[in-house]
Amino acid sequence: MKLTKFTHSCVRIEKDDRVLVLDPGTFSEVETALEGADFLLVTHAHPDHFDAERVNAYLAEHPEVKVYAPAAVADQVREAAPSVEVTTVEGEEAFSLGNFEVKTFGGQHALIHPLIKTIDNVAFLIDENVYHPGDSLVVPHGLKVKTLLVPIHAPWSKIQETIDFVISVRAKVAFPIHNGLINSNGHGIMESQITDFGAKYGTEYKHLESGKSVEV
C-alpha cells in the first residue's frame, strides 16, 4: 500500500489500482491529491482539512468519487455536488470501500478553548494499518496500529499531549501530519522529542516531506 503525504493533513493511499484520499484542505495540493481518486474521506469541516470550494468543484466534475464524512461536510457536498454519492459517518463504524477496510473512532474535535464549541471529528483507520485521527488524539481501542499519522502542531495541542498520543498508540511507525503552520525550526524541536519518546515505546518516527511517498 502506497501512502503519499501532501501539505498539512492531506494524504493519498493507493492499493491495487484503487485510490483513497483523506483531508484535502486549504493548505494542500487538492487537485493533485484527488486525481483519479475513488474515495474521499474527511475527518471534519475545518477548512485546513476540507477546502470546500476546491473540493466541491472537483467533485462536481468527477461525480464518480464517493465521499465519507461527518454531517457538516457531507451536507455541504450534497448541496454543491448533488450527483456525488455521499455517506455520513460517525465514530464506532466499520465498512468496506472497494478493497479498503475502514474503521472509525472518536467523534469530537479536540478542545481548542472552553468558550469555543467543539465540532464533529471522525478518525479513520484504513486496513488495520494507517490511522488518521484528524484533529483529535483519540487512541483506537482493541487493535494494534501499524502506521500512525501524528498531528505534530496545532492551536489545540501541546507537545506533552502529542507525545502521550504516540506512546499510547504504540504504532510500528509514525509520520507527521498537521504541520503546515510550522517552519524547519519548529519541526526540529517537535520531531526530535517525538522521535526520542517514540523509540522508548517501540515507535519509529520518520519525517515525511510533502509530495513524498512510502510503502506501508
Rank of each mutant, 00 (worst) to 15 (best):
H113V: 02
K206C: 11
S184I: 10
I163V: 15
S192P: 06
L143T: 13
V173S: 05
I163D: 01
R170V: 08
I116L: 11
I167N: 00
S168E: 02
A94R: 09
E128A: 11
N99M: 02
D48E: 05
F124P: 13
T4G: 04
E31I: 11
E31W: 12
T203I: 12
K172G: 05
S213F: 01
Q193A: 13
N56I: 12
G202M: 12
S136G: 01
K146R: 08
S184C: 03
F6R: 07
A123K: 14
K15G: 02
S168L: 02
F175E: 02
G36R: 06
K66V: 09
D120E: 13
L97W: 01
N129K: 15
E161R: 10
V166P: 03
F100R: 15
T147N: 08
A74T: 10
V145E: 00
G91V: 08
A69K: 14
L34G: 04
K206M: 09
D17K: 12
G107H: 06
G98R: 14
F105I: 00
A80W: 12
G98D: 06
N121T: 05
V65M: 07
N99Q: 07
P114N: 00
Y58R: 09
E29I: 04
R54T: 12
V139Y: 05
G107A: 10
H62T: 09
R78S: 11
R170L: 07
N99A: 02
K15P: 08
G98K: 13
D17S: 09
F105T: 00
A123S: 13
P70W: 14
L41P: 06
A81F: 14
N179I: 05
K206A: 06
H49A: 12
F27H: 12
H49Y: 10
V102T: 06
S83E: 13
E215A: 02
H141S: 12
V19S: 08
V130M: 05
E64S: 11
F50V: 13
V169E: 04
D23T: 07
P70V: 09
F39E: 00
G211H: 01
L34T: 05
T195R: 15
I116K: 14
V138P: 04
H113E: 00
L59W: 10
A123E: 04
A57F: 13
N99P: 10
L143W: 08
S168M: 00
I126Q: 04
S213W: 10
A69W: 11
E61S: 13
T26A: 08
E53R: 15
V138G: 03
A110T: 08
H113P: 03
D16H: 07
A33I: 09
E90I: 15
T4V: 03
